[in-house]
Design a protein around this nucleic acid. Structure first.
Lengths: 227, 227
DNA sequence: ATTTTGTATTAGGTATACCTAATTAAAGAA
DNA sequence: TTCTTTAATTAGGTATACCTAATACAAAAT
């Protein structure tokens, strides 16, 4: 529970480092991510450097040290385990788990997190399809790609999303797209990249390219052209 | 998760108000309870007064307002619900639940606490036998007294303890005294107030007066002289 | 090459939660 | 009642985490 601030900075740096490919992580980016000002970030950067969690130079940006990355991955691990637990064992919806996990991720009780992880049967993915790192910080591998990269006939299974906003997750629920759903791509509208899917009880679901970009899937059709 | 400090001060004031009967709650007592210095307490007192959680005067001591008491009772509620959950659903021992609950009690997610409370079947007492207040802050009634107030022949059931230190709880486990155990008082050594109990499989357990004072029981023998 | 624009950085300020050292006040003992 | 002890209080200090305003810098545009 101590150092919630450190947790949040390191998590944000880690996250930005992954999502903002190529470009470095700058103080301004961090400030935007954390909804604070850049002088505040600059100050905190000094303290995180002193604690040897990060390095920083204007040209190289902010990078996590081994210790910093370990810390960040541990926060991610706790977050995702709690999300899974809230969903699987406490009946929280896909779009409700995040807020609660934001708090629970800071509870550093190893026995607690180990226990709920065990009760869950050591899952590899959380309710958003995001991989849960093991205690050593190693992430499980998964063959996943955006739904938008599908071709006609793909037999896809939804394994995750790249946007976690309540609004987005709610929308997916509303159009009856849920994690682990199996669907078949029945039409691709070349004009705008929209995709039509056939789901359970043959219901037809159509999603725009914008949505399809954010839905991660695995294609289970053998020798599918999508590969 | 915000205002963990407020939580801890209010909880401590509430707790001292109950245990330290008669005497008022003074800044020094609070300082000792929280393991900080009295100037720090004095400063915080001002802020809690400003927030209308407490009142303070040298002669009347520190008292909780309605709002302050509600806040404190809510922390106690969350703490005890988590303790119960950790014990009943996650396999934590009697003496392990407290530390984890110290952190979890600050997670202010109503749906979460409601849910685990529901999953537990709306229990009235936690693993230490302490009553869990309902959402309105009302505590369940229980007829409980110290084990030390027993007479020969009392058929007692252990419903709680008044000390929660790991060492004490560990000791009770070690001599095989656990919550909800049923025992019979077979000897009272007047000389020092020690009590001998017969428990399951007729094992004899002896506790000193000091211990017996801290163990809360209910006597289930009809018309027992202890009443 | 110079200006514009945006990012990085410094300077200085606030609030919170703690501290030590010193002072005041009250209560108990002589 | 006066001394002594303890509790309450004030004064002043530190560290953290935030802020605004001002300045320095660097990259892009003219």
């Amino acid at each position: 529970m101590n150092n919630i601030t450190d947790d949040n900075y390191l998590k944000a740096i880690y996250h930005l480092g992954l999502t903002t490919n190529e470009k470095l992580v700058s103080p301004t980016m961090l400030a935007n991510e954390l909804l604070i000002t850049s002088p505040s970030v600059l100050e905190k950067i000094k303290s995180l450097i002193a604690k040897k969690y990060i390095t920083y130079s204007k040209k190289k940006g902010i990078t996590l040290t081994k210790a910093g990355k370990d810390m960040a991955v541990n926060v991610v691990r706790r977050h995702r385990i709690w999300e899974t637990y809230l969903h699987k064992h406490l009946g929280f919806n896909w779009d409700e788990v995040h807020a609660a996990a934001e708090d629970l991720e800071h509870v550093r009780n190893e026995k607690l997190i180990d226990k709920i992880f065990e009760v869950l049967g050591h899952p590899e993915f959380d309710p958003h399809g995001d991989p849960i790192p093991n205690k050593q910080g190693v992430f499980p591998k998964s063959v996943r790609r955006a739904l938008s990269a599908s071709v006609m006939g793909c037999k896809i299974i939804i394994v995750g999303v790249t946007e976690h906003s309540d609004a987005f997750l709610k929308y997916l629920s509303d159009i009856d797209l849920n994690l682990n759903d199996k669907l078949v791509v029945i039409k691709i509208i070349e004009f705008d990249g929209s995709i039509q899917l056939k789901g359970r009880n043959n219901g037809i679901i159509q999603v725009s390219k914008i949505i399809a970009d954010k839905i991660m899937v695995r294609c289970e059709k053998e020798n599918c052209r999508c590969k």
